[in-house]
Design a protein around this nucleic acid. Structure first.
Lengths: 341, 341
DNA sequence: CTGAAAGCGCTTACAG
DNA sequence: CTGAAAGCGCTTACAG
């Protein structure tokens, strides 16, 4: 007799119900294969003992956890929150549990988290962006853990992916800015190293500039870590130039919110004195004053489709081509004509 | 010989290195107990095979995962994000991995997630708020998984906790509102059911009202799910009353941001026409226009101390009394004197 | 310092 | 429909 304080096992239940462990296991996993009379007896024992299966043992024996891991750069400011919420909901209705961890935008932390989640038996992984050490992809392949890349898209991507073309999207927005007569354009970019979304968005601005006769090296680009404060600091710096920009394009809405705050602090009216744009269209974009012109990303659609695609891979389905979602430019108050145009 | 595609096991490594599995296990877990020559040989085999320990097996054999689970109501709007980030950082430096899941404020989902995390071998759990089915606490006790409650505090709490007194904090803010002459006070509360933070904050407002001769039933209270939109709708409704309030106190900053937006949409100036307050002091509070008067919560401090306390419990330390953190009222632009005062 | 072997708590062919 | 038993991949006393 083991002490009553210890956690009951399958064996305890089997003894109490007077059946084999196999039968108890079946009652729990495929109840239709057990006759009702014994099933009832077993379930009574389960309840009486307060039995819960040991997950480690179960995983080891069944090779399956119904757990999906998501590794995102940050949980702050809800850039990924909305998409992730939809992702979780879609997983949940299909019987999977989502476990999330974040990396603070540090590749070495991401690697740790990937290994941690794989080690904990994740059946599949959601990763943000495609740029990472090839060894990691090889590792995932060796471990036979499917990974789906989200928030990024390119037709030639080597891995299963769902997202949008960050470069083309930002180019589209930059075209709108240039169309309003802006020639002196400032850019507040998130740190580019290890962040393909940031670097591609920056390239998109350069693409549009080149196409309209603005030499990309004339763009005044400030690169800064992600945050409201850092966005505000960058804006302050940009507007103190001898020839300050008439429009400032930010790598995301959070940086843009910081830029707006800095503009107000400097007594500059937006968009009369300077236009500001963002990217992502998170809730923030419609809360700030003035409301923010930005690129709308279909967060929930991406989350839901990512869940369906990833489960498909986990359950042995074929790898499809990368999926591209459509974005759109949201024109709001913060973008106006160039001051001196 | 197993097919080369399958995942290498301890046994494979042992064979390749010509040692026993025990020795391989020791190399990985307590390398100082193996002489360097054989250790090198083993490590070479580990690398050659690309071996990673199977977590399930390890958990089952060792009864320890160095995993902490956190279950939060929502990942959106970063109410919990900042505290959680600090929590994660503190865990990480101490060798623990954080896994997060969210419940969309639904108790039954929380229960599932708690069981899921326990089943997956979490060594300890961080939970938000103290109000939940007692059976859940009994379950955790039976499973011997320590749980720490955060974001809530009361001297008589039955479980390990770190947080602040939501009721007293909101009362403090309400006193400030009343001190500015407001007598007609509207309240936009988050849904109270199953959310002790929301109900205690509401009680705090009633406490202050009673203390200053305002019958609590004269407060116009609207209860609404969490969100910007819902906050805006509630505000619209409040301001359409025959005798609209001169101040609207919101259960959190997100609802307050919605209220500010609604006020603007209705052509009302804040705080000239109506004052608005929040709770939490998330980044949003300083981004909105006007800036938001709110209750400042020490998110990062709470996260860091929670990590230290929870690890203490996980590693067998004694259960201390609930820890109370100090909050403060942040007076900003959105609170002014009562219009008709 | 190292190995043989038991055991962790499940699942699942295989028989019956 | 049910059971005996092997096996999942590790860790850890216990010997030597």
């Amino acid at each position: 007799m083991r002490p009553s304080r210890s956690i009951p096992t399958l064996d305890d239940v089997a003894k109490k119900a007077g059946v084999s462990t196999a039968t108890v296991s079946r009652c729990l996993n495929s109840p239709e294969r057990v006759v009702q009379t014994t099933r009832k007896r077993v379930m009574k024992a389960v309840d009486a003992l307060g039995y819960t299966p040991n997950f480690g043992a179960r995983v080891m024996a069944a090779k399956r956890t119904f757990t999906i891991g998501a590794i995102i750069p940050t949980m702050e400011n809800s850039i990924f929150a909305r998409g992730l919420q939809a992702f979780q909901e879609a997983l949940h209705t299909r019987g999977y549990t989502l476990l999330v961890s974040s990396t603070a935008y540090r590749p070495e932390v991401e690697e740790e988290q990937i290994r941690a989640l794989v080690a904990r038996g994740a059946d599949g992984l959601l990763l943000i962006g495609h740029e990472r050490d090839p060894a990691l992809y090889r590792y995932l392949e060796r471990q036979a853990v499917p990974a789906l890349i989200a928030w990024a898209y390119a037709p030639d991507m080597q891995h299963p992916a769902i997202g949008f073309d960050n470069r083309a999207a930002m180019r589209l927005l930059a075209e709108e800015v240039i169309a309003r007569g802006h020639r002196r354009i400032g850019v507040i970019s998130a740190t580019v190293k290890g962040n393909d979304r940031a670097s591609e968005r920056l390239e998109g601005i350069k693409d549009a500039a080149s196409a309209h006769g603005i030499p990309p090296e004339h763009l005044c680009v400030i690169e800064t870590p992600y945050g409201i404060e850092t966005g505000a600091d960058a804006m302050t710096q940009l507007m103190q130039e001898l020839q300050p920009p008439t429009a400032v394009m930010c790598g995301n809405d959070v940086l843009a919110a910081g830029a707006l705050r800095a503009a107000r602090a400097m007594g500059l009216a937006v968009p009369e004195d300077v236009s500001v744009t963002g990217f992502d269209d998170i809730e923030l974009a419609r809360i700030v004053t003035p409301t923010l012109t930005t690129v709308h990303v279909p967060h929930r659609e991406m989350g839901t489709k990512a869940a369906i695609a990833l489960i498909g891979l986990v359950e042995g389905g074929p790898v499809g081509p990368p999926v591209e979602l459509q974005i759109s430019v949201e024109l709001r108050e913060s973008l106006g004509p160039a001051k001196s145009a």
